[in-house]
């Protein structure tokens, strides 16, 4: 029988994989950024699953603290990625990672 902690952890792994797939498969930058967020959520879910200490005991608080920190980091990352994507769209006209052109270094 699968315990709920393992279920959570497996869910996290699945989310991580889906996010990674999106990151690699979609050319559109916005989708890539969303994929990264899904990946992050997967990692957080695995961390939360690690907090499970049996049905009677209170969960371990440490992973929760870590996840909160992680979410803050992830928000920053998303912000940076979005602003870069906006610049790329402004400069190249499309939010895609097209092959490099021969411009002066």
């Amino acid at each position: 029988m699968i315990g709920s902690a393992v279920l959570y952890a497996l869910g996290g792994v699945a989310l991580f994989g889906m996010g990674l797939y999106a990151l690699l498969a979609y050319p559109n930058l916005l989708r890539k950024i969303l994929g990264m967020n899904v990946m992050g959520t997967g990692a957080f879910t695995i961390l939360i699953a690690a907090a499970y200490r049996g049905s009677d005991a209170a969960p371990d608080p440490v992973p929760h603290a870590l996840v909160i920190t992680g979410i803050v980091v992830s928000v920053c990352a998303t912000g940076l990625a979005l602003s870069l994507a906006v610049r790329i769209q402004a400069v190249t006209g499309a939010a895609y990672l097209t092959p490099d052109e021969e411009d002066a270094p």
Binding site: L20, L23, A43, G70, A81, I88, T98
Partner: peptide, 23 residues
Amino acid sequence: PNVLKAAMRYLIVSLSGSLMYLT
């Protein structure tokens, strides 16, 4: 353009690497 795209690739690699590390 080339610099921004290079930076974006760098960010994507960097973030996925960190997330793998975090997991």
